[in-house]
Write a protein that binds this DNA or RNA. Sequence first.
DNA 1: GTGAAAGCGCTAACAG
DNA 2: CTGTTAGCGCTTTCAC
Lengths: 315, 315
Amino acid sequence: MSPITVSRVLNRPELVTPDTMEVVREAIARTGYVPNMLAGGLASKRSRLVAALFPTIASSMFAETMEALTDRLGEAGYQVLLGLSGYPAAREDDLLEAILSRRPDGILLTGIVHSASTRQKLLAAKIPVVEIWDYTPTPIDMLVGFSHERVGEAVGDYLIAKGYRRLAMIGGDDDRAMQRRKGFLSSLAGHGIEDVPTMAIPAPGSLRTGRQQMARLLDEGHRPDAVFCNSDALAQGVLAEAQSRGMSVPGDVAVMGFGDLDFSPYTFPALTTVRIDRRGIGRIAAEAMLARMEGRAGPEKVLDVGFEVIEREST
Amino acid sequence: MSPITVSRVLNRPELVTPDTMEVVREAIARTGYVPNMLAGGLASKRSRLVAALFPTIASSMFAETMEALTDRLGEAGYQVLLGLSGYPAAREDDLLEAILSRRPDGILLTGIVHSASTRQKLLAAKIPVVEIWDYTPTPIDMLVGFSHERVGEAVGDYLIAKGYRRLAMIGGDDDRAMQRRKGFLSSLAGHGIEDVPTMAIPAPGSLRTGRQQMARLLDEGHRPDAVFCNSDALAQGVLAEAQSRGMSVPGDVAVMGFGDLDFSPYTFPALTTVRIDRRGIGRIAAEAMLARMEGRAGPEKVLDVGFEVIEREST
DNA sequence: GTGAAAGCGCTAACAG
DNA sequence: CTGTTAGCGCTTTCAC
């Protein structure tokens, strides 16, 4: 029995007779043979590895996308190498270099802002690239996400429609947060509201920093009737601070979050937020990548999955 | 200039003169050469890859451990392959098989309960194995964690000392939750309390399920003065249900969580919980693994990192 | 349907 | 300090 027959039983069983297959399978089980994908990948130039770069997975925002991605790719026989680029994506370029040396068959990046060097390495690798969690009509290769500027606009429009006029914002300083801020301010400017205090803090925001920034906002004399927070965690901090000062929500101050985490609607019925299909992004990104890796037709190259403003004024 | 010299510049720069190094470095930069670690790993039998198996990373419990692990291993030049085994660890064995075919230099598993087949594969792989997030004096190889049974006991002792006598428990059905339950019940039994309603739900528990189970508990006529929840998410659900029924916390019912997530102390000052050093576990596990992979002396093979009951009766 | 030969890109071992 | 040789374990290609 030659090595190539074993290889075929494992990778292309349709080229082998049931008899030989049986013999080989039995031998594999008996000897405890474990294939070596380093050798296989080297010879075939297919590593069956996909790399995924996220700023962090400590927030369940990205963690759920990562899970959905891993699940779908796992079904198809791929494994996922996780790279954590941090905020800001300081390490993205070095990480990418290390990752490309493993010859992944595809790569997923969070966001659309990458250094020239990163873009160039990606192009040189000649593998499918999916950018997620943001939107541009001209991605490096494929994209599955939504426009953060449009989120900001939608939130601005929503709060204006609800009658709020003294707006404030508390947000992280990452690119996507800045886009949401831009959309928010532009929506408000369209309604003649120009003076919008914005507290920027280092991403990722936490409940703690949200609470601190709300305190600072109030201590500086601002009296917003609505605050847009760049994450639900920040929003919870804002709510905590408002409550500790005896302010009613949304009576004295309305609070708008972003993300729609599991706990949000329960712990703070007053919290209105923006829902993102976190797992959907991962699943669709996996689908797009698989299609390209296996030469099938996939979803569109640029897919805007959108978002949804979730109202929860009171419960 | 021979290939081996390039290899040495990249991997063992101390064996090369500054001059040749300079020349090679320049050529690498100029040509955009990207090393191929599949080939390198195959030849050297060192993949510089570590695999980590978690049930999920959607809870920030494990996500933070994963981050700390990835950070520390990344500094040392290793990358981390993430495997999600799910609850229950149904896929652990298949996942392990797929993972071992990449020839990782080390492997990290969550928990100490593994199938015979899993243990046998692990032993056969002859690589460092670190089990985390649980405790046994006899791990497969190394261990960094804490005893869930002791957590249960500590919580029982704590609630008894506070004067509570009508106890209940809401918890997941995974192995570790069961250990906490065992410790909890044994502590209570030691104080003559035998009748402890326990609601078991599929792991991982969420705020939603916590709230449902609390409702069921009350609807079934139980009137606990304290409820021990197997996660902070469940605890928040319990708190939400209690509040919606107009019960005061901890006046009418005290709520005890597990995990000490960032939001817990702020959103529910009344929530007392158990703090786990989530990042510490990841960092120490990485340290232990690195020590073994690089032939250094590391921390002890079996490390109980303990836990801490965090009191936050009122704020 | 199965096998033999060659080679993927790198590094261990040993020379020089 | 640098180079030569051989080979890691698999898959491609081309015979049979």
